[in-house]
Every structure is written in structure tokens, then in C-alpha cells.
Design a protein around this nucleic acid. Structure first.
Lengths: 217, 217
DNA sequence: CATTGTGAACTCATTCACAGCG
DNA sequence: CGCTGTGAATGAGTTCACAATG
């Protein structure tokens, strides 16, 4: 008898990253009119090993047909369910500088169900201003109250690094347990909270390193 | 007899990422007036295992003093040399939308020696405009010529995903072999080129997954 | 018969544990 | 004595290789 239960432990972190990649390629394949796709093809598109694709999917179920491949539409929906992107998430963002403003205007997020529903800053020049997205900048003081009121699940930090931890603590006070941190600093949070960092400088350092050591510049 | 030679192969990719983290903490420690730091302390600050810190550094030499720790200033400089951030890099950016503009205005990059020296777009509205940074937006057509003329080593892509591969190909034509890709798509490049992706959507997907599977939302 | 699904083999990365040394 | 440096042990993640199967 087949267990449909997901063995959520022992799933490599990298698997989740790749599921997100597969999802995007499946969207494109569907758009291009493909109905089926093999692990080989999907692997090539995502630049991974075909066995990796099958193993990644294997953690969550049996989605393919032997000898044939995967139904593009079906697999896309299965991955949506796994990633929980078949729903809406509310996000609050703190730090409305150039980067914060750019993110607020990004079409990609709402298109995928990630909605900014509140924006915060400490700058009195900015507080009260209405952004192009239609959102009004609120005082950081109002963060905890607003986050709870609007049921925000994800906090986004685009502040200078000096205040990132303080802002994170505010999100934590407001029971947020997922933070997307764009500030170039490590923030410390308790076990009940998940943090993903997006750190431009680290990526540039890596390129710099590779240019020197692998390309000989 | 001690070999000073670096065994550049067999160094985990993640080690480079952590070196970048160590570097930043060392900057802060130096700023705060610390002269020495132990692997324990540095590890705590970066949220890694102390043995990891020592092993990471061990790939590149012996920088510590047994019984004492590491000289903050010295170690910082050693890591700068390893990462090749003790020099300037020229960057060109293609796609001057909200995100591209935000990056161009970011103080962090020039402060660390990563300088934008050219900006490209296809939008005739934007071409010729002078940006707040003082840089003038050039026609994407001029990319190959300009990149070679200004000796740009790093290409940054902030275009919509549909044109990201085409832009990458232009950078490749211009002999650029390091690309920082912000577009939410996989770009394919030959072995002579290194790519680092910064992908907001993937990070949100990961948070979404964790909220569902680990936090039970 | 082409392709999935998966245990086993392998490779890569982290952590332990302690010898080495200032 | 305390902390680094590192070989050895462990653990995690990837790839292989092939049995299972629509």
C-alpha cells in the first residue's frame, strides 16, 4: 500500500530551492504549449542532474508516468501545493528607500500571491506619503499593531543594517515568523522564526573571488 | 616546511560565502575597537560552528595565534586578499527599471570597490537620461563596445526575464566572465563565465514552504 | 521500451576531538 | 592554559544504476 504521507524531515534545503526552479520552468513550458515533460528535459532547463529532479519530486509523492514523463500542468499544481504558493500571503516591508520602493513596485510579487499590505519607515518626510502602489507609508511605531491587524505573515527588511535587528525584533513582537532580510547583516531570531537573507554584497564577493581564483584576473 | 600555497580546489562553495560574512563581522569588530577575536566569538556572530570558522580559514593559511585568537585587522586584510576585494571592479548594468535604479544608487557597492561605470536599457525614453549617480543611460546596442572600452569585468542583469539570456549573451560577446543575475530566470553560459543569481521569488517560495511545513500555517 | 522511482554508492561538507603550540 | 589547526568521524546531499511499470 502506497503512503501519500510526506516525510517532511530529511528533505534537503536545496530541494526546496530547486522545486521553485522547476515550478518556474513548468510555467514557461505550459505557456509554450507543452503537455508532458521528462525529468531529463526539466533537468536540462534548470541546469541540474535528471536523477536530482526525480529524487526531489520523490520526497513528496509519485507524480510521473513511467515511460512517459510528467504532465506539465499537473506537476505545476503539485509543486504549487508543496510550496504553498496556491494561496495569498500578506507582507509588510520596513525601510522605504530605493530598494524598498523598487520592491513595492515589482509586478512579480502580487502576480504570485505575495502582497505588500503595509510599508513602514522612520523618516518623517516619508511617513504619510502615498506610494505608486497606492500604499501609504506608516510610522515604524505602528508596525506591531498594523502587522497584527492586517494579519501579515511575512516581514521584509530593507533598512540600513544598523537598524535591521531592531526591526526584526518588532516583527517578532508582532508574531511574524518569516522574515526576508535584504540588509547586509545577520539578524538573530528565535526558533519560531524563519529568515531568508538576500545579500547582494556576498554575491559580489563570490564573483570577485571566482574572478581571481578561477579566471585568474 | 610550511606550504603557503592555497589548495584552491576542494574548497566548499559555502566557505566563500562565509568568508564574506566573517569579513563583515571583522569590519564591525574593528569599528567597535576590538583588536583580537576568537573563532568562538566570530562563529557566534556569524551563526556558524567555531570549528567551521577555523576550517574555512585553514584552507587559505594560518592566520591565528594559538591560545589567543585572531588579530581583527590582520584577518580582515587576509580575507580581503582572498576575496579579491582589496581592489576595484568595474560593473555594467542592463535594465534600468526600479530595481536597476535602486542598485545604481546603493552606497554599499562603491564603498566596497564595486563601481557601476555603465548603464544600459532599450527604452528610448530612458536612453540619454542622466541618472542621480551621474551615469548616463546608454542604448543596449552599445553594450559590447562600451564594456570593452571601460574594461567592465562584472555584468549585472536587472531586465525582465524574457531578455535576460539575450543580455547575458551580449556580456559574453564582450568577454565579461562574471554575471550577477537579478532576473527570475536561469541563464545559460559557457564554462568561462561565472553566474550568481539573486532571486527574490525563490526566497519567498522557501519562506512560504517553511510557513506551511514547519510553522503549520 | 522509454522513463520513472529509489536503494546503494559516492561525493562533498560539517563537526568532533585532540594534538600542537604560543 | 587556552585557543588554533587539522585528521578522522560523521552527516548531508548528489549521482548512479537498475528494477519497476504504464
Amino acid at each position: 500500500m502506497k503512503r501519500e504521507l510526506i516525510k517532511t524531515d530529511k528533505i534537503p534545503k536545496a530541494t526546496i530551492t530547486r522545486l521553485s526552479l522547476y515550478y518556474r520552468q513548468l510555467e514557461l513550458l505550459e505557456f509554450d504549449g507543452y503537455r508532458m515533460v521528462s525529468s531529463d528535459k526539466l533537468a536540462w532547463l534548470c541546469q541540474v542532474n535528471p536523477a536530482q529532479v526525480r529524487k526531489d519530486l520523490g520526497y513528496f509523492g509519485e507524480f510521473g508516468v513511467r515511460g512517459v514523463g510528467y504532465d506539465v500542468r499537473d506537476l505545476k499544481h503539485e509543486i504549487m501545493k508543496i510550496l504553498a504558493v496556491n494561496r495569498e500571503w500578506n507582507m509588510g516591508i520596513a525601510g522605504i528607500g530605493n530598494l524598498g520602493s523598487a520592491l513595492l513596485q515589482h509586478q512579480n510579487f502580487p502576480a504570485r500571491g505575495f502582497n505588500f499590505v503595509a510599508a513602514f519607515d522612520t523618516d518623517t518626510e516619508k511617513i504619510g506619503r502615498v506610494l505608486p502602489s497606492g500604499l501609504m507609508v506608516k510610522d515604524l511605531e505602528e508596525l506591531v499593531f498594523t502587522v497584527e491587524e492586517l494579519e501579515i505573515q511575512i516581514g521584509v527588511i530593507t533598512t540600513p543594517p544598523e537598524v535591521a535587528q531592531m526591526v526584526a525584533d518588532l516583527f517578532l513582537d508582532a508574531q511574524v515568523n518569516a522574515i526576508l532580510n535584504f540588509s547586509p547583516t545577520q539578524i538573530h531570531v528565535p526558533d519560531c522564526c524563519r529568515v531568508e537573507n538576500i545579500d547582494f554584497t556576498i554575491k559580489l564577493d563570490i564573483l570577485s573571488y571566482k574572478l581571481k581564483h578561477e579566471m585568474g584576473l
